[in-house]
């Protein structure tokens, strides 16, 4: 992979990858591993990209597939660094207390619900979310309402 591909095709959309990877990881090491793996898989499958879908949609798919299947290893390591404001000091966005709470709540959801709500929060239409997940738009709409209620309960109780 040339540096050009990373700089021109991945880096401008790094935000999507960062947001997803953060929702599936609990430590800084895992976060960096997942991010790297997602970039690697995006590069490996780049030739299969067709203009039929948006590049960002395609990134969502690959990144979610990576996150859903990447083996978790830090649960076995005692020294894993938790993702804290300090650990992600490069990203001012994550210093926001409300956002941190929201991420904590999102992490309480199942893997599938996490994917759905992340796509919804990033303003993807239900139809597109359905295509990415592999289900129907109607079911996505119902599920989003349920997830939002679940998140509200968690946030009102400040997570537990």
């Amino acid at each position: 992979m040339s540096n050009d591909f990373y700089t021109t095709a991945i880096l401008p959309h790094a935000g999507i990858i960062i947001k997803i990877c953060r929702a599936y990881t609990d430590s800084q090491e895992d976060f960096e591993d997942f991010y790297q793996e997602a970039c690697l898989q995006i590069w490996k499958s780049r030739t299969a990209f067709q203009d039929k879908s948006k590049w960002s949609t395609w990134l969502y798919r690959v990144t979610l597939n990576v996150c859903l299947t990447l083996a978790k290893k830090n649960t076995k390591r005692g020294y894993a660094t938790e993702i804290t404001n300090e650990a992600s000091e490069d990203n001012k966005a994550f210093e926001n207390e409300n956002l941190n709470l929201l991420y904590k709540a999102i992490k309480k959801l199942s893997e599938v619900d996490r994917a759905i709500i992340l796509l919804h929060l990033d303003e993807n239409p239900h139809k597109e979310i359905a295509v990415i997940i592999g289900t129907s738009a109607n079911n996505i709409a119902v599920r989003i309402n349920r997830i939002k209620k679940q998140l509200k309960i968690l946030l009102d109780g400040k997570i537990n």
């Binding site: 898989q41 490996k44 499958s45 299969a48 990209f49 395609w58 798919r61 690959v62 979610l64 597939n65 990576v66 859903l68 299947t69 599938v112 994917a115 295509v131 990415i132 997940i133 592999g134 289900t135």
Partner: peptide, 10 residues
Amino acid sequence: DIKSDNLTYL
């Protein structure tokens, strides 16, 4: 095929 939808991929 890693670019397929989540259900198909899994």
